[in-house]
Design a protein around this nucleic acid. Structure first.
Length: 433
RNA sequence: GUGAGCGUAGCUCAGCUGGUAGAGCUCUGGAUUGUGGCUCCAGCGGCCGGGGGUUCGAAUCCCCUCGCUCACCCCA
């Protein structure tokens, strides 16, 4: 029977070779910048106990409520594909007693997340994040430093984003504000949309985040959390802003900014881009003191962020991406079976010297091999035919300016080694400093 | 889960009020018997998403179905 060819699942995709240079560029730059700021990589499992996220993220959130890929394994354990990593990092921090060294711990991660959402522009079911967590400090200076680091990365990648900040209070002042908010909403309850009326009960703060046009006038009239912070939170927020200003960082206070994860306290922030369409959040993060205790660990202060790699790659300037393509240095063209053997041998020699080589097996005419060399972006073509074999001197053509000359093997090696490193190594590789 | 739009060659799309398929790009070959990119010429390539209906005749009209995209919700 005729079968439909299998394809990727909705919301998942293959990242093809032509796109990989963009990803490498972003990942390489990110690792460099994170290292500059003293972060170390941690790799946690993609699979975790469902309870980790259910408790860590919060049962009222959309993520836990309807977006997790959860299944029961053969042993009857409820397992979930991670929808985010902060809870995992905090778990690992405690599990491996990383707090025992004293001081603060700076960790970063990079990898795929899974959320069962409807796909649209900039939103996938499997998507990639780079994120970092600073554990063991509640200093607002840490927050400003992390934000500075992200901006440094975006700057290097020539990506523009607006920084939005807010304080969502803490255990002392937030309950009081929620009560005030709920009271204020009930004054005009009939004028809000259905979702807002529901959220007023279940997740009151999220009413502030409603995007429905008709709700806007009433939301604007609601009390602002920044006016109802306790003294400690208020001071924290002020110091945070002082540090941002001293670093010369521009920001906008958005009192309505409420993030979708329950664990945030005090500082919350987002970076948004106008180039992303409706899903405009490029980076999101905040402070989560207390998360560790919710997971059954010791008290640990924490601050972190996650950056959407897919979205960053999407808006990366093409010019940057093109510069980071790994082009073959030498494309070997052969004109007979005997020449093929010589080509294989020469390629082996050059590769031992660190030269990127390419040759096509079962290739066609000289013309078609030249065309292929051009297509793969080879900088040079080495032509091996009867004449060359007889003389043991080969025709080397520089594609850029079409100059061609004859070289012996030692001359070839010497010439290739003499090329400027920038011409052989792409700018995103780690050893171009 | 809700709404809107779209499914025609590998890709981007044209095909008006029904007459059994086209362009550009890509690819292959030639102009240039051992030389790429530009140009010109030729060629390969399509159960017009799938199923049913109306009709002498459907890519075109109607119904159903599947898929994709964007938006809402929410988020990276």
């Amino acid at each position: 029977m005729e079968q439909k060819p299998l394809t990727t699942l909705p919301g998942t995709r293959d990242i093809l070779p032509v796109e990989i240079p963009r990803w490498h560029l972003v990942e390489d730059r990110a690792r460099q910048v994170l290292a500059l700021y003293g972060f170390q990589e941690i790799r946690t499992p993609l699979l975790e106990a469902t309870e980790l996220f259910a408790r860590g993220i919060g049962g009222d959130t959309d993520i836990v409520g309807k977006e997790m890929y959860t299944f029961t394994d053969q042993g009857g354990t409820s397992i979930t594909l991670r929808p985010e990593v902060t809870a995992s990092v905090v778990r690992a921090y405690t599990e491996h007693h990383m707090y025992r060294g004293g001081g603060i711990t700076k960790l970063y991660y990079i990898g795929p997340m899974f959320r069962h959402e409807k796909k649209q522009k900039g939103r996938w079911r499997q998507f990639y994040q780079i994120g970092a967590e600073v554990l063991g400090s509640d200093d607002p200076a840490v927050e400003a430093e992390v934000i500075e680091m992200i901006l440094r990365l975006l700057e290097q990648l020539q990506v523009e984003a607006r920084l939005l900040i807010n304080s969502v209070g803490d255990r002392n002042c937030r309950p009081g504000f929620i009560a005030i908010l709920k009271e204020a909403i009930s004054q005009d309850l009939g004028r809000f949309c259905d979702d807002c009326r529901r959220r007023a009960q279940t997740n009151t703060l999220r009413v502030l985040d409603c995007k429905v046009e008709s709700c806007q006038p009433y939301i604007n009239r609601l009390p602002r959390i920044t006016d109802h912070l306790c003294r400690e939170c208020s001071e924290h927020f002020q110091k945070f802003q002082d540090h941002l200003r001293e670093a010369g960082i521009r920001y906008e206070i958005v009192p309505r900014l409420v993030r979708g994860l329950d664990y945030y306290v005090r500082t919350a922030f987002e970076m948004v881009s106008g180039e992303l369409g409706s899903q405009n959040a490029l980076v999101g993060g905040g402070r989560y003191d207390g998360l560790s205790e919710v997971l059954g660990g010791p008290p640990v202060q924490g601050f972190g962020f996650a950056l959407g790699l897919d979205r960053l790659v999407m808006i990366l300037p093409d010019s940057l991406a093109e510069a980071s393509v790994d082009r073959p240095e030498v494309y070997l063209v052969y004109l007979s079976d005997e020449a093929l053997k010589a080509a294989i041998s020469i390629a082996r020699l050059l590769r031992r010297q660190g030269v990127r080589c390419h040759l096509e097996f079962g290739a066609g005419s000289l013309k078609s091999q030249m065309r292929m060399a051009n297509r793969v972006g080879a900088r040079h073509v080495l032509i091996i035919g009867q004449d060359e074999l007889a003389k043991e001197r080969y025709s080397l053509k520089r594609m850029e300016d079409s100059k061609q000359w004859e070289v012996s093997l030692p001359e070839l090696s010497q010439y290739l080694q003499s090329l400027p490193a920038a011409a052989r190594k792409n700018p995103s590789s780690t050893n171009d400093k």
